[in-house]
Amino acid sequence: MRNDVDSLDQMLSMLLDGAVDVLDISPDLHDTAVERYEEVGTWLAEHGSPGWRIYPQGSFRLGTVVRPGTPSGEYDIDLVCWLPLHHESTTQKKLKQRVGDQLTAYRQWKQDQGHTDGPETLEPRRRCWTLGYPGFHLDVLPAIPDEDHQPTGIRLTDKDLWEWQRSNPIGYADWFRQRSELSRQILDKRHASVADVPTWPVRSPLQRVVQILKWHCMIKFAEDPDNRPPSILLTTLAGHAYTGEEDLFTAVRSVLDNMTGFIEKREGQWWVPNPAHEEENFTDKWNEYPERRRAFHAWFDEITTTVTELADMEGKGLPAVFDRLVKSFDHDPMLRSYERYAARMGAATNQRMGATGLLSASVAGPRKREHTFHGQHSYPRD
């Protein structure tokens, strides 16, 4: 049993960390998703023309995955299929179809071999091809080099836009790792053209902050997914605003205090540039759909209010803190975190925290609330 009592910030940090740990992808499903990524990547690298390269991007690469909130929701793992072509030697349509043909051949081969672990579906989306598996899907993003932004800039296909879109997932991931103060080198024996999916046995405070922001955002926009701020925007603003805090709740407060200061206005246009590619604007849709900017600020005001109220609960005790948390976050992950925390504090199964922060058998535990499920959106922004 602990002889000391945690401060409010410590309590909140452990409760939030425990909840997002519950929301993180399970090791078994993570391993299955990575295995499918590696197999698809190896097929593309071996059956495409010489020089094809495959690497991950998005929340799997960044270590900021959050569990989908609907029973039918799926995790996604994003991979880039990079072809060594000049943009003048092909078109967006031809490039996307070329990659799609190989994915079709892969799916057919799995079926012909009688394998039951192949993709159940293969569908074209705005910028990528999506292979569906039970519990998750792979988004395969066709890309070519961006000669103007070497060595890692890429040009992307987009069925709704005439011009090639541009990005730099490798540069962005490097930037985010630097902001997280994490750098992990994974050695691999697989196909040399298929880059590994990074593993994160311990999440950094910044990674946890991003997961908390994404989680709250999913809840806020459960009924309005079209206006939900993209995960890449939240990740970028949090990455800029993070200043190295080790305590999670302190990091959340600091990020919220500073993140909107990194939203720019350039010649009348709202702008949050990709820190690895200045020409990619993560708020481009705000200029076309002003309601999306208003929705972002409504979400930001709501989570800021939540965090401010939590910060003012010194001495209120664990049940009161729990009740305030579940007004803004899902009950079940918070309850599991609460129970873990109480156990760590040495609580017996019939005990709960009293108002003083000390264990008391006379105080009722947290009440069960009706659970609602909420969806998820992650980069790429299809």
Rank of each mutant, 00 (worst) to 15 (best):
H47A: 02
L16S: 01
R2M: 12
M11E: 11
D17N: 10
Y37S: 05
D9I: 10
E39Y: 09
T32M: 12
D31I: 05
W52A: 03
P27S: 11
Q10D: 07
G41A: 02
P50V: 08
L8Y: 01
A45H: 04
D24I: 09
Y37C: 09
L12T: 01
D28R: 09
L29S: 03
L44A: 05
G48C: 12
E39I: 11
S13W: 07
M14P: 04
A33I: 06
D9M: 11
S49D: 15
N3Q: 14
H30R: 15
D9W: 03
S7G: 14
L15M: 13
D9P: 07
L15K: 03
M14A: 15
L44F: 04
H30T: 12
L12K: 01
W43N: 08
G41F: 04
D21G: 13
D4N: 07
D4S: 11
D6F: 07
D28Y: 02
E35I: 09
D4E: 07
D17S: 12
L23P: 00
Q10T: 09
V34G: 03
L16C: 11
V40T: 08
V20R: 02
S7T: 15
L8K: 03
N3V: 11
E35L: 10
L29E: 06
W43A: 11
A45E: 01
A33K: 01
E35P: 01
Y37T: 08
A45I: 00
D24G: 14
V22T: 08
G51D: 14
L8D: 08
A33E: 09
E46K: 10
S26I: 04
